[in-house]
Design a binder for these strands. Structure first.
Lengths: 144, 144
DNA sequence: AAAGATTGAAATTTCAATCTTG
DNA sequence: CAAGATTGAAATTTCAATCTTT
């Protein structure tokens, strides 16, 4: 975790990014015991939620990373035994990523940890406050 | 920018981290024209704000990164001509980072861009809303 | 031995180039 | 030639080990 000034600026943006750095670092740390990273968990999440195999290009799009990164991320997940590469039935250029049983178990464990982290994060805030914050985040995350 | 699921979860944490990813990506992109990264800008910020040279260890602490990372970050900043290494006057184990004139100019340019990004980010929100959001972010960023 | 910094290697992500298939 | 995936190299950060000074 590196990069942002702790003090010295009063930009909302800096406070925002710094808070996210902390939250992300804690999440990554907590996920550590499952052997997952946020990136790996994200891939498993999409495979579970979609309910069907996805091509690497599709996954890269959903995760917002470049295709070559997905190639290597799937390499690692395959090495972990959490996904498998399968030929695309129709298009021989494409490759499907399929989640394994172990992948589902690991995803469940990771999702549980993330839910705990989430609970901790919003602890002590009123519903109205969270609504406001959520509205802000949605706008930012959508490209505002 | 990679790692978080776009959809499929309803965790506040995910929405939060994903929004921050977007904001950070935009900030890095905008900073690009100055040749600075958020990490480099953070170092320059601390040197400017403190008003005096800082040791690499001190900078690493303020930026929340490991010391070896600061060594290499200062290597790059020195290569850019934005800071210089100077012997610590009292302790010969320590090294001071000093900002150069060019470093100050570059920092000013970067800070201006960040201010613009900040303005864009908070555009459309009321002061009271921002105060609440800020309170949340401060708590998260402090380690709550 | 402890503190400060550095070095070399590992991990993750992006970019440019390439290879295969359409 | 365009689309999908991969490979090899560059950039950034962290970790482990080392070197110097206290």
């Amino acid at each position: 975790m590196c990069g942002l000034a702790k003090k010295g600026t009063n930009l909302f943006l800096i406070t925002f990014l710094r808070a996210a750095q902390r939250a992300e670092a804690r999440a990554e740390m907590a996920l550590g015991e499952t052997g997952l990273s946020l990136a790996k968990l994200g891939v498993l999440n999409h495979l579970v939620e979609s309910g069907e195999p996805l091509t690497l290009g599709e996954l890269a799009g959903r995760i917002s990373c470049v295709k070559s990164n997905m190639t290597q991320l799937i390499d690692r997940l395959e090495g972990d035994g959490l996904v498998a590469r399968v030929d695309h039935p129709a298009d021989r250029r494409s490759v499907h990523a399929v989640i394994t049983e172990e992948g589902r178990r690991r995803y469940a464990a990771g999702a549980k940890i993330m839910a705990e982290q989430d609970k901790e994060l919003i602890k002590g805030f009123k519903v109205a406050e969270l609504k406001q914050l959520h509205a802000f985040l949605e706008r930012v995350g959508d490209g505002g």
